[in-house]
């Protein structure tokens, strides 16, 4: 329930960003993010909201595990 997935920002339109997460694109809100972000940055996404900015290397670290867990949880 409290899983958050690192996602790469590919477009920003005011407080809405388009992110790429493991190949899927979706729109998320930047309303609760505490700092400015730019295209190319990684953010942790939970329930359609970016909750924190993360460094790219650490974001990529987490993706393998998270995709596996997300798949398991949907089963």
């Amino acid at each position: 329930m409290c899983l958050a997935v690192p996602s790469k920002i590919i477009r920003i339109d005011d407080l809405v960003a388009t992110v790429d997460v493991m190949g899927a694109r979706r729109e998320i809100s930047l309303m609760i993010l505490p700092e400015e972000v730019n295209v190319g940055d990684y953010v942790l996404v939970h329930a359609g909201f970016a909750i924190q900015k993360v460094r790219e290397d650490t974001a990529l670290d987490s993706l393998g595990l998270i995709s596996e867990m997300a798949r398991k949880m949907e089963e």
Partner: peptide, 17 residues
């Protein structure tokens, strides 16, 4: 709306929106 502190700020933002 369910969830702990991870989720409630997003619901708060949606209420404001």
């Amino acid at each position: 709306a369910t969830g702990f502190e991870t989720t409630s700020p997003s619901v708060a933002a949606t209420l404001c929106e």
